[in-house]
Amino acid sequence: MKLEVNIGGIIMKNPVATASGTFGFGLEYAGFVDLSRLGAVVVKGTTRLPRPGNPAPRICETPAGVLNAIGLENPGVEAVVEKYLPCLKDYDVPVIINIAGDTVEDYASLASRLDGCQGVAGLEVNISCPNVKKGGMLFGSDPDSAAEVIREVRAATRLPVIAKLSPNVTSIAAVAEGVARAGADAVSLINTLLGMSIDIKSRRPALGNVMGGLSGPAVRPVAVRAVWQVYRAVGIPIMGMGGIASASDALQFIMAGASAVAVGTANFVNPRATVEVLEGIESYLLENNIRDISQLVGAAHQGI
């Protein structure tokens, strides 16, 4: 059985990765999951300088989902390179760094800083974070500005570049086309959906940052739709995510056109969700006599 997939030059031994921001730097979950079994570890969004993040409350549960407004709290790229990457080198797993910035220059500077860095397999460019005042989703909401960020990142690094797309747009396919033309090696989607909740006792927004990003099983149909549309629009590989909690969820993304998948919010509920998704995919392939996972990628498009 062949599970190996190639996401824009990143060779993953199986299609299951972690979604940025939901798995820390991997080490937080190393007690539950053998990180070497994963297809890739995508770490928390990293910025040029350290960031404290948004005020509390940062999280709010919603029906079958969560709203978060973390605000990209992270120790900054230097600490990531010096402190966290070395701890991950003992694991046989590609590490993908999720990068974010306020300006196009921030993204380019992060990309060049990480170029040639030992232990970095690729970059996921977060042009879709709904929780920061500058940058983030603003770049990802328009095909031209999304393409501009990706073009600069592409020019600054030899690493594989994955553009992480926002669902908060009129046409996600158009943004995917823009970043593909600008040189992205792959796309990942979806980031969270902009949402909000109000605490009727205090009559205040439930999140400190007022609005936040919705994730978890509640968003899955939106994410599957987005993967479906992007698969029809571009030829580069897709990493699909949004509400994946089981192998059957993950298989929907693969059949919609994703070559790989990432597990996010489900890790909070079940710390072994990633490996359980992987084992479930393996059983499905076995039961259905499928020798290579790539046979399933985009399978649902046949005849449509």
Partner: peptide, 25 residues
Amino acid sequence: HMACGVGACLSCICRVRAKGEEPEY
């Protein structure tokens, strides 16, 4: 309020005495 409980999601902050101007959590 917590999501992961293990230090991965960075949601459960409380403010601590900061050395500089920026808030520290």
